[in-house]
Design a protein around this nucleic acid. Structure first.
Length: 271
DNA sequence: ACTTCGACCTGTTGGC
DNA sequence: TGCCAACAGGTCGAAG
């Protein structure tokens, strides 16, 4: 699953191939994702011109003249741009066939993703309307986190991953950003100073931008829409390194569970 | 109004 | 080698 950089990479990968094009066919092999894909998706999409591809949080928005396709990649979803001759595999659930002959193929082994349709403003959709701010926008600042955390005892890592406050910071990037900011993931959010939030926000922006530049983190099954893997994984400082040595001080990295998610941190560097 | 926790799925990995 | 439990990038919605 793609975190924000992977979704951004996917957006950038598919956009040039679908903007101002039309879908000529929609093939649904498996409709049961997180929610059922609308039966009449084909009727909604075929012959509609694609006007824009955008991203809100980890949702991809494909805006057509008649409405917007809302796509979430879940934990294991991906879009690939393929030639129409490639036979569908087991988890290739949807093909969006383009007038160019190419196909945008949705693959998702775990089926935690979603493909929905709305005729209205997608930002008013139930799933999007309560989302927090975008981490790469100027609005996401140390002051923003500091102010909203004054009465919150929740651990800082949980706060960073709360999509109602700020979107797009998944498990990998939460772990990484806290490490580089020398802040313990367990620290109650209200006990973090404005100066520490400045460092944290700067690191979050830096890491997300770097990862987007590198084409997203590739783990087991994410491949960008052009099938080239991302390279951010080679630079992870703590995520997936529990029990190994800290790159800064050589202490053994701690691995714990927080909110049913794995947290890795350096007990020495992160206070 | 908050936080926590089960649920949704399949595939892979690690321990016995 | 085989089996089974635990875990994997997310997040909704129910329960506390």
């Amino acid at each position: 699953m793609p975190e924000l950089p992977e979704v951004e990479t996917t957006k950038l990968g598919i956009a040039p191939h679908i903007i101002n094009k039309k879908f000529t066919d929609v093939i649904l092999r498996q409709r049961q994702l997180r929610w059922l894909i609308p039966t009449n998706l084909k009727r909604f999409l075929v012959d509609q011109t694609i006007l824009a591809v955008s991203r809100r949080a980890k949702y991809l928005l494909i805006t057509c003249s008649s409405g917007t396709l809302i796509v979430h990649l879940g934990m294991s979803g991906r879009f690939c741009l393929i030639d129409n001759k490639v036979p569908a595999q087991k988890h290739d659930h949807v093909d969006l066939v383009l007038s160019s002959g190419k196909i945008i193929r949705y693959t998702d082994p775990r089926r935690f993703g979603a493909i929905l349709w709305t005729k209205d403003d997608p930002h008013e959709h139930k799933l999007l309307v309560n989302l927090g701010i975008e981490p790469l926008e100027a609005e996401f600042s140390a002051k923003y986190l500091f102010d909203l955390s004054r009465n919150k005892s929740t651990p800082i890592k949980a706060l960073l991953m709360n999509a109602n406050l700020v979107v797009g910071i998944g498990n990998i990037y939460a772990n990484e950003a806290l490490f580089y900011s020398k802040i313990s993931p367990l620290r109650p959010a209200r006990l973090i100073s404005i100066d520490e939030y400045k460092i944290l926000v700067a690191n979050i922006k830096r890491i997300l931008k770097k990862s987007i530049k590198l084409g997203g983190t590739t783990l087991k099954d994410f491949v960008g829409s052009d099938s080239k893997p991302g390279y951010f994984q080679q630079t992870l400082a703590v995520y997936g390194r529990g029990g190994e040595k800290c790159i800064t001080c050589s202490s053994t990295l701690e691995e714990i569970r927080q909110n049913q998610r794995t947290t890795v941190y350096c007990h020495t560097c992160q206070q």
